[in-house]
């Protein structure tokens, strides 16, 4: 994003609207991104971002030490812990954290009161959230897979790709929640733990409407291990992932555009 040259006039009076350059649009604004990164990684909640992948690696190291190299165990752990617990949790933290606290404490004003399209703000924050959650979930998943059985049956790569795809969708969903409600983290956790963690694993019908299953479809395609199965086809999975990401992102932008920072009188 190169900076366009606005009027650098120092005299305040006089209309500049006509002469002014257009409002900044696009999908990525460097400054918004920098602020978001620092908000996400510079605070206490970032600890959780580090803790969860660390926990995963500790567990897989322990398991590797116990069980040696084993494809079945690898698939179980990567699906049971990485994809169904860690990925959504990281998604909650990154997705809501990218925008929720700013709206909550009102600092978002400093972004909104700028000649920048609000859709640009949302898309930038979404990209940041995606970046952060991919780094903190797909990468550890890949590492965990390698530790467990060194990409045997392509399991490590399969689950890493699935985790990345899921991270994108989760980021969008939770970013939208962050715009919609002050209780985004709680709602997100309930969704992540209950829907994805329990219902998605137990109630068959719910599985078709589960980010975890959609991304599992990708893992199923990539891995050579027959124990990795999804309830949805690859096409369905990918279509749903794209659709959910796009709709959530659009809706978040729409909501931010009409966000009312009403006085609290």
């Amino acid at each position: 994003m190169s900076t366009t040259a606005p009027s650098g006039r120092t005299h305040p009076a006089g209309p500049r609207l006509q002469a002014a350059p257009p409002v900044r649009s696009g999908i990525y604004h460097r400054t918004v991104a920098r602020l978001t990164y620092r908000a996400l990684l510079g605070r206490r909640r970032a600890l959780l971002l580090f803790c969860l992948p660390l926990l995963l690696l500790v567990i897989v190291s322990a398991v590797r030490a116990l069980a040696g190299q084993d494809d079945g165990t690898t698939a179980d752990l990567l699906q049971g812990f990485a994809l169904s617990a860690m990925v959504p949790l990281i998604g909650v933290i990154a997705g809501t954290g990218a925008i929720g606290p700013e709206i909550d404490d009102g600092a978002i004003v400093y972004l909104l009161a700028k000649p920048i399209k609000r859709s640009t703000i949302v898309s930038t924050k979404l990209l940041v959230a995606i970046g952060v959650s991919v780094v903190f979930s797909a990468l550890p998943t890949l590492l965990a897979g390698l530790v467990l059985d060194g990409n045997g049956q392509h399991l490590a790569v399969a689950f890493a790709v699935a985790a990345a795809a899921a991270s994108i969708a989760y980021s969008a969903i939770f970013l939208m929640l962050g715009v919609l409600t002050r209780h985004a983290v709680v709602v997100g956790l309930v969704y992540a733990l209950v829907w994805e963690g329990v219902i998605g694993n137990v109630v068959p019908g719910a599985r078709t409407l589960s980010v975890q299953q959609w991304s599992l479809a990708i893992a199923q395609r990539i891995s050579l291990d027959s124990s990795v199965t999804s309830d949805v086809s690859l096409t369905t999975g990918v279509v749903f992932l794209v659709l959910v990401t796009a709709v959530a992102g659009w809706f978040a932008a729409h909501k931010l555009r009409t966000l009312k920072l009403a006085g609290e009188e």
Binding site: T3, T4, R30, T31, L35, Y110, K114, I116
Partner: peptide, 8 residues
Amino acid sequence: ANAELHGL
């Protein structure tokens, strides 16, 4: 950051 957001 605010200056950058204004595109100065």
